[in-house]
Design a binder for these strands. Structure first.
Lengths: 248, 248
DNA sequence: GTTGTTAGGGTCGAAATGACTATAACTCAT
DNA sequence: ATGAGTTATAGTCATTTCGACCCTAACAAC
């Protein structure tokens, strides 16, 4: 292996390698009270695609793992730590960038709403509704669409919705996450029944006071608190279950 | 984005980028008649890990997509075309190779048994039972384990088992694939019932003659004949369902 | 013929799921 | 204070799914 192309030739052809990150957060619409998915984008300050919005990213440092590079992107653009960070896909089409051959390893992350609200916004960093994120630089439109697709898959599978929320949450909030991601209404009673069994959530003895209706009980996530899953998939697997629901 | 590190520094740090491929094929044990998963490995002919077995792979050419590079690896090592080829994961740990910083984008492929039998074997290319593939070069042990994990996920989900078989197959053969991958016995009657509904298989009007028992009917796969899924995930998604099975 | 073995169809109960009803607990308007 | 409105939470019921199991059909070998 490691073919016979000589080294100088290989270097000459070597595509640049970059890391990009799709960062999802939930925001509650003040009007309808419904949860929506948002993500931060950065404005391109150089060619190509100067002035367009793009996913946060940059070159891979020589002393950091892929995961670390993605986490660094996150810190640098939004000043916050993700509650979930996973590799999405490596994009390497020939025509991704007009100026150079570019291979991007893309990660996707979930952050909590409190953090998303605190995240700085500036001239060149702004949050967008996921459904409004179009016309991005490079092939980032497709990447965002794919990340949403994958988010749907993961959330149906089960153990990712909690990472959108804080340490304590009501079942209605959790259901709001599911509804925002899946894009359909879920029956509150059935949703409750499904979560009572299995999944890594536990009821606390507290309730959320101050609402205008019956105070809902607060729950916590007790599963592997995979702040940022370990580098290799080998280490990541025990926390997940890998693979998905049986459409049969 | 695209940080402020200057270009020369970035080049100096730039990790090498390689493509590797995990190629799975099914072989039937002549003794027990059970199906087993095999994969081809190549012997390292240079340092590091000289003499050890490793996944087929090599550098990414400047004029080929990631997918094309993986397909080329396949051709070059086994002289055969895969019936299925998908990106597995990008591995980029700091300590993967002792001699250099190496990022590997790994693909996994399925090939048909007839093809696997025809595939050349040589001094430096040999097929191994997946369960016997240990002590490989670099972190390839972990990569193979992860590929098997993902294969299990995909097969439970549904649409990948056919790619191990030829154009026409019996349900017993298909069940053999599932049993080899999942590592457990499946009830023939229930298996039949599940496949009768939904999945992209159709009964032909032919039966397989020549066995010593009742001749089984032959079936075909009618789904998207995803010989080699399109480059971007966007194009790949309609054929798949993305994500994995529900451990709940 | 009989026997052995696999193909393929069916039954039955347990478990999961979706649609729905009912009651509890709170706030707010009157 | 009382009732209306809203959400939380429990329960019911019919349908579907799934695993375990049984039975008959169709071949080869003897």
């Amino acid at each position: 292996m490691y073919s016979s192309a000589n080294v100088s030739e290989r270097q000459a052809q070597a595509p640049s390698l970059a890391i990009s990150t799709v960062i999802f957060a939930l925001r509650t619409d003040p009007g309808t009270g419904r949860s929506e998915i948002w993500l931060p984008l950065v404005r391109r300050i150089r060619q190509p695609h100067l002035g367009k919005w793009a996913l946060p990213g940059g070159p891979l440092g020589g002393r950091e793992s892929l995961q670390d590079a993605a986490a660094r992107n996150l810190r640098e653009t939004t000043k916050l730590e993700p509650t979930y960070l996973e590799q999405l896909y490596a994009f390497g089409g020939l025509d991704r960038s007009a100026t150079q051959r570019l291979v991007s390893i893309v990660y996707w992350a979930l952050v909590r709403p409190e953090q998303a609200d605190l995240a700085r916004e500036s001239e060149n960093v702004q949050w967008f509704r996921a459904s409004d994120a179009a016309g991005l630089a490079f092939d980032h439109d497709e990447i965002v669409a794919y990340a949403l697709e994958r988010l749907r898959g993961k959330i149906e599978y089960g153990s990712v919705a909690y990472h959108f929320l804080g340490a304590r949450f009501t079942l209605a909030q959790l259901r709001g996450v599911y509804e925002a991601v899946l894009g359909r209404h879920l029956d509150p009673a059935n949703f409750r029944r499904q979560l009572r069994s299995a999944r890594d959530i536990a009821a606390t003895d507290e309730v959320l006071q101050g609402g205008r209706n019956r105070p809902p009980r607060l729950y916590t996530y007790t599963g592997p608190h995979q702040e940022t899953p370990p580098p290799g998939p080998a280490a990541r697997l025990p926390a997940e279950g890998q693979s998905a629901a049986p459409p049969s």
